[in-house]
Nucleic acid binder design. Structure first.
Lengths: 338, 338
DNA sequence: CATTTTAAGTTAAACGTTTAACTGGTCGCA
DNA sequence: TGCGACCAGTTAAACGTTTAACTTAAAATG
């Protein structure tokens, strides 16, 4: 049915080895033969069989992508974008991406992703926080692993991270530049490195501007950075401190809750209070006013991770790399000059 | 490195053919040998090589999943859920799913998904509307195809569909049961079969209840069912007809816009106006009040599609099947008795 | 008892590549 | 002229399965 290397060899009047060497563009093949063979390959629309290749080269050409259920099924397309990023970059490198979600409470009885057990991949990309147990079990298989948006306890891995500290600074500085003096920070799950880094960025910016860092400007008692928790955090904060003119929420979801609370209190955004989010995952038209936020280059993160694992598989030596992805201020109508 | 069939055969003191036959649980193998071999397989943690299998059986064990970019990157996790559904069912059937997004304006210059060109799949699942051209190009490759939530012009394919007419009825009947008499329908992109079916369901329910079908209760001029369009549609409708006490929006996004408009007009939901959505894609906590809607079994649709293609690949004969997925009313606080 | 059937395996070819080892020709050089 | 070096390919083994065809022994049959 499908054209094989034999068909090409016959048509080009060379051995199959020559065709193979041409495909890998080996230097032992003369320019003329190479051109001739390539032409015929093109003409016959030949594509090598992955199975046959895999069998002899002991490479599957697949990369596994692991994610927890709730990360993938989140309403915001954060991890979806990351995943698409890996897929797009995979095309460049002739890999396929196999997705497997796992339970967030991965335990002893849970199986590792099928592609691990089957050894149907050459490497693994893990996005977001995953249970320690998964990493341990996985480590027995000796696959190269790249993490995205998560720092595993064992530092000996490559990782693609977000420059959250810088993001926190950018957001806060934006509010400072608009003339705000009483700028609050709202965070949930402050134990999570990403969130605490954003707070760090906030503090650095506040300090640099010689503004006071006050505990009644910082509300981090919520355990999860979701919309309703943003609502509650805003309530706690504003019932204590009446002077706040700007709120920097640690992510967009919380920012939506904050806006909701302000509206319910009859305050206008941004006329009375400016609000900033983080992540840029809410579609522009779905909030009123459109949310000012910090863009995280999700798609690009996926691409970087795929590049990392790709070189990792092609080169011999390897030392873990950390890639810090820059973030970007996205100015929209939820903030304004005071 | 990895255990091969040879290792198992040696350990079990049988030929590799026997091991293979055991794995396919062929009847020519005696119970005792089967048990013995299975034990050793288990013990040695043997997993057959996909490459080797694929090479001889001419089956890759992969299923391609095609989706347009904007469908996948949507803020609502509609298609994401469908995708996950296929993945979950794929595990049962020992398939892997390869995702490939294509541009919504797929044109002559665009390549087919890589897994098609590579022939690295055994079948294809296509979710949501895709360009005609893609289907034409794809048809040259003779892969079995199953569609989800989309009816291709050439009816000769299996499809997994949503019972939108029933959904429209359920939603409307719910409002009728609550005592509403002036029930409006808001839709966008009414040319889309899913949307017009929902309208049909609405009309049937209204008729059955002996209520009048009035053009000033039906607003379908928006070209896309998004939030802002829901907002605008609500404005058009309510500025003409002041008697409306309930609005059934053709999807959740438009329903959110409707609620927004009502709030902006100082009306309370549901006290003054009841609002219904469709799809159940907004997280419960992210709107106030939580949206009453019709649940579409997205994950299950993905699973059904994978089952379809799976039997399609395992059985000989084949005639196209349509699977109509039932929907379900989800009562939440955005509707109330009048 | 001789022959056929059945049961329970085994043998070996084939799938489509990759790649180390080999070959045969040409060239340069003493 | 003889010999090594190099160039441009070819040969053949190997990768790990599946499966049609074959084998052998025991059971059934007349």
């Amino acid at each position: 049915m499908a054209i094989t290397i034999k068909d090409v060899a016959k048509a080009a009047n060379v051995s199959i080895a020559t065709v193979s060497l041409v495909m890998h563009n080996h230097r032992r093949i003369s320019k003329e033969t190479k051109v001739k063979v390539l032409e015929i390959i093109e003409q016959m629309n030949y594509r090598p069989s992955r199975s046959a290749r895999g069998l002899v080269s002991r490479r599957t050409g697949n990369i596994g992508f692991i994610l927890t259920n709730d990360h993938f099924l989140r309403t915001e397309p954060f991890y979806t974008h990351i995943f698409i990023g890996t897929e797009i970059e995979a095309r460049e490198n002739d890999f396929y991406v196999l997705l497997n979600t796992i339970n967030s409470d991965f335990n002893e009885r849970d199986q590792l992703p099928r592609f691990i057990l089957d050894r149907n991949i050459d490497g693994v990309i893990i996005a977001g926080k995953v249970p320690q147990l998964l990493m341990e079990k996985l480590s027995h298989y000796n696959f190269p692993v790249v993490y995205i948006d998560f720092i595993p306890a064992n530092k000996n891995y490559s990782t693609v991270l977000v420059d959250n500290v810088m993001g926190g600074r950018l957001a806060t500085n934006h509010l400072i530049d608009l003339g705000h003096k009483n700028i609050a920070f709202i965070g949930g799950d402050i134990g999570h490195p990403s969130i605490s880094d954003r707070l760090t960025g906030y503090m650095k910016a506040i300090e640099s501007a010689n503004l006071p860092i006050s505990p009644d400007l910082i509300e981090t008692s919520e355990n999860y950075p979701a919309r309703t928790n943003g609502y509650n955090a805003a309530r706690k904060l504003l019932s204590v401190n009446k002077n706040i003119t700007a709120i920097f929420a640690c992510n967009d979801a919380m920012a939506l809750g904050v806006i909701q609370y302000l509206k319910d209190q009859g305050k206008r955004v941004p006329q009375d209070v400016s609000v900033m989010g983080f992540d840029d995952v809410v579609s522009e038209s779905s909030v009123d006013p459109p949310l000012c936020t910090v863009r995280v280059p999700t798609m690009e993160m996926g691409m970087e991770a795929m590049k990392l694992i790709s070189t990792l598989l092609k080169e011999y030596e390897f030392y873990p790399k950390k890639i810090m992805m820059p973030v970007e201020l996205v100015v929209r109508q939820s903030t304004q000059k005071i």
